[in-house]
Amino acid sequence: MKIITSGASYLDIDAYACCIAYAELLNLQGIPARAVSSAKPNASVSKTVLDWGRAFQTHEPSLTDEFILVDVSDYHHFDPLVVLDQVVEVIDHHPGYENYWAKKLGSAADIRPIGAAATQVFQRWQTSDLLAKISEQSAALLATAILDNTLNFTSQMTTAADIDAYAELAFRAKLATDWPEKYFLECQASIESDLANALAADLKRLKPENNLPQVFAQMTVWDADALLKKHRPAISQWMAEQGDDWMLNVISIRDGKSCFLAEPVSSQRKLNHLLTLDWHAGMADHAPSILRKELLKLGQHTNL
């Protein structure tokens, strides 16, 4: 059995979509596969997405199972059910572990800069000649993951492959033209209804060598200014409780920018080494919007 899974702490829409859609493809190819996860979906897996009805399966791993990891390649953060020596394929777009997996798996490690891992899974559907058989739900999941991970195609990580994949998948999923706005508004409503869980669900604790604040939370919403105006005190209090070196990146789809909230001055200084920012009372905007994985890449190439 091939077990398709992702990270340990949370499932964003990219990981969620990739697990389900890739398991569907492998089963169509006659390869027994299951999408399995110990982690819970975060706010990017909206109510409408959940209502599409494509759920993960339960499975007790056996000694003969093989694992395929999607949207993650850092083995420190794999789902706890993963047995490292039984990993046979990795599909990811986060930098840092390319060499490790290239040595271990060769061409079965597909780790490259692209907007969404969902695009990589779509490309597997394309080359399989089974794209005509993809379910509407899997097409919709992959399309939505591309929307989210490319920040509605405004991220600097967006490639032509992401744009083409979305067009094909949205057509096959019969998604409405206003789906992007509806989706991001729904994500924002979910975040605002439970801020603490939304922050915890996309928070990473980074090592000092990353040259970024060690507590780094991220969320994507339709209107970041409105969210921060309404909820900043609660957000600041919660983040400060996580440590004394922290930041939040609120990505605003409506106006294509990142709103950084980082009240510790030392945290602001770290960001100033990577970007030109104008801080006002612990906040700074950056346009175009920038993802945490992009900042991590910048940090890896910066000596402080």
Score class of each variant (00 low, 15 high):
Ile3Ala: 06
Thr5Cys: 13
Ser6Ala: 15
Gly7Arg: 11
Ser9Val: 09
Leu11Met: 15
Asp14Pro: 14
Asp14Gly: 14
Ala15Lys: 03
Ala15His: 04
Ala17Gly: 11
Ala17Met: 11
Cys18Ser: 14
Ile20Tyr: 07
Glu24Cys: 07
Leu25Gly: 12
Gly30Tyr: 08
Gly30Gln: 09
Gly30Lys: 07
Ile31Leu: 12
Arg34Val: 10
Val36Leu: 13
Ser37Ile: 08
Ala39Asp: 13
Ala43Pro: 12
Leu50Trp: 10
Asp51Ile: 14
Gly53His: 03
Arg54Phe: 15
Ala55Phe: 07
Gln57Arg: 14
His59Glu: 13
Val72Gly: 09
His77Ile: 05
Leu84Glu: 10
Leu84Trp: 06
Val90Trp: 04
His93Cys: 10
His93Thr: 14
Pro95Asp: 10
Tyr100Leu: 08
Trp101Ser: 03
Lys103Gly: 02
Lys103Met: 04
Lys103His: 04
Gly106Thr: 01
Ser107Arg: 12
Ser107Asn: 14
Ala109His: 13
Arg112Gly: 07
Pro113Leu: 05
Val121Lys: 04
Phe122Lys: 03
Trp125Leu: 07
Asp129Asn: 15
Asp129Gln: 15
Leu131Trp: 00
Ser135Trp: 10
Leu142Ser: 08
Thr144Ala: 01
Thr144Gly: 00
Thr144Lys: 00
Ala145Asp: 07
Ile146Ser: 01
Leu147Asn: 03
Asn149Phe: 07
Gln156Trp: 06
Met157Lys: 11
Ala161Pro: 04
Asp164Phe: 05
Ala167Met: 07
Ala167Gln: 14
Phe171Ile: 07
Arg172Trp: 08
Leu175Ser: 04
Glu181Asn: 07
Phe184Cys: 05
Cys187Glu: 13
Gln188Met: 09
Ser193Phe: 02
Asp194Phe: 04
Leu195Gly: 14
Ala201Glu: 15
Ala201Cys: 11
Asp202Gly: 01
Leu206Pro: 05
Lys207Leu: 15
Leu212Phe: 03
Pro213Ile: 07
Phe216Val: 02
Gln218Glu: 03
Ala224Gly: 06
Ala226Glu: 05
Leu227Glu: 00
Lys229Asp: 09
Lys229Tyr: 05
His231Lys: 05
Ala234Met: 07
Ala234Cys: 03
Ile235Gln: 03
Ile235Glu: 02
Gln242Ser: 13
Asn249Ala: 11
Val250Gly: 00
Ser252Lys: 01
Lys257Glu: 01
Leu261Pro: 06
Ser266Leu: 09
Asn272Lys: 08
Leu274Glu: 00
Leu275Arg: 09
Asp278Thr: 08
Met283Asn: 10
Ala284Ser: 10
Asp285Leu: 04
Ala287Arg: 09
Ala287His: 04
Ser289Phe: 03
Arg292Glu: 02
Leu296His: 00
Lys297Ile: 06
Lys297Arg: 05
Leu298Ser: 06
Gln300Lys: 11
His301Ile: 12
Asn303Glu: 11
